[in-house]
């Protein structure tokens, strides 16, 4: 286990160095990822001027988006398509080491470049979260990071069967946008929409920590949902991985 942790740390460092050299591209990606929450903020501030905590929610959501975003359709799926994934199978390493390391490295740089802007915006709008709420959101954020990775990774595993893994991830991202609290805070959804949405993995992977950080949800109610989905998604990802690997070993990618 210590050996794996060291290997992962070095792999993360390698990927961080790579992404640091791509910093201009990284900044464009951060801007791209920030557009949706900022758009939501503008729309819902105008549409529901009296709604409580919309600003703090969307700023927290922007931070969550930056720290949970995953790109396994570009890292893992492309490695399957261009054959480099086969090379990793010949090495004595977990085959997903590179994808995990890249994921963590990108989130690290997203945090470094993006979070100061979000914090500055929160300070400027008087929407800084309470320290207690922020602290309570940490475990929820960590679970959301794992859930988002599982969702994207699971969809990217479709690369074992099709040439259209990017489409599968795109569909998942759309569901995340619609049902994860990005298009609208779940609290503002009509009828049973909010209650149903809070039971789905999309909210657990995106909106949940933002609601906790902005003081709109109780972390003790959020964590069981997130943990439940994490168990389900880890199981599903493990199953897809085993079947995908079997398929890859049969056809060679």
């Amino acid at each position: 286990m210590r050996g794996f942790a060291r290997l992962l740390a070095v792999a993360c460092w390698r990927e961080s160095v790579t992404w640091w050299s791509l910093r201009s591209f990284l900044i464009t990606l951060i801007v791209d990822q920030s557009v949706a929450p900022l758009l939501g903020l503008l729309v819902w501030t105008a549409a529901a001027p009296g709604a409580h905590g919309v600003t703090s929610y969307y700023l927290a959501l922007a931070a969550v988006q930056l720290l949970t975003v995953s790109f396994e359709q570009h890292t893992f799926a492309n490695a399957v398509y261009d054959g480099t994934f086969a090379d990793t199978l010949v090495r004595p390493q977990p085959a997903l080491l590179g994808a995990v390391a890249t994921n963590l490295a990108i989130r690290f740089w997203y945090g470094v470049f993006g979070l100061p802007v979000v914090v500055a915006a929160a300070a400027a709008t008087g929407a800084l979260p309470r320290p207690a709420a922020l602290l309570a959101a940490v475990p929820s954020l960590l679970l959301a990071m794992a859930l988002r990775f599982c969702l994207t990774c699971g969809a990217s595993f479709s690369a074992f069967w099709t040439q259209r893994a990017h489409g599968a991830v795109s569909l998942m991202e759309t569901l995340l946008f619609l049902l994860g609290g990005m298009a609208a805070p779940l609290a503002l959804l009509p009828g049973p929409g909010a209650a149903v949405g809070r039971l789905l993995p999309f909210w657990a992977a995106l909106g949940a920590p933002a609601e906790v950080a902005s003081g709109q949800a109780d972390v003790l109610q959020v964590l069981p949902v997130q943990l439940g989905w994490l168990v389900v998604l880890v199981g599903a990802v493990a199953l897809l991985w085993r079947r995908g690997l079997r398929r890859f070993a049969a056809v060679g990618g």
Binding site: G3, L7, V10, A11, R14, V17, T18, S21, D87, P92
Partner: peptide, 24 residues
């Protein structure tokens, strides 16, 4: 066709050191 994998921004020595870790 693909003699050296891994991140291209790293130096050759970085790559070799990672191999050392990988292969213990």
């Amino acid at each position: 066709s693909r003699p050296l994998g891994g991140p291209e921004e790293l130096t050759v020595l970085d790559t070799l050191r990672f191999q050392r870790l990988l292969y213990e």
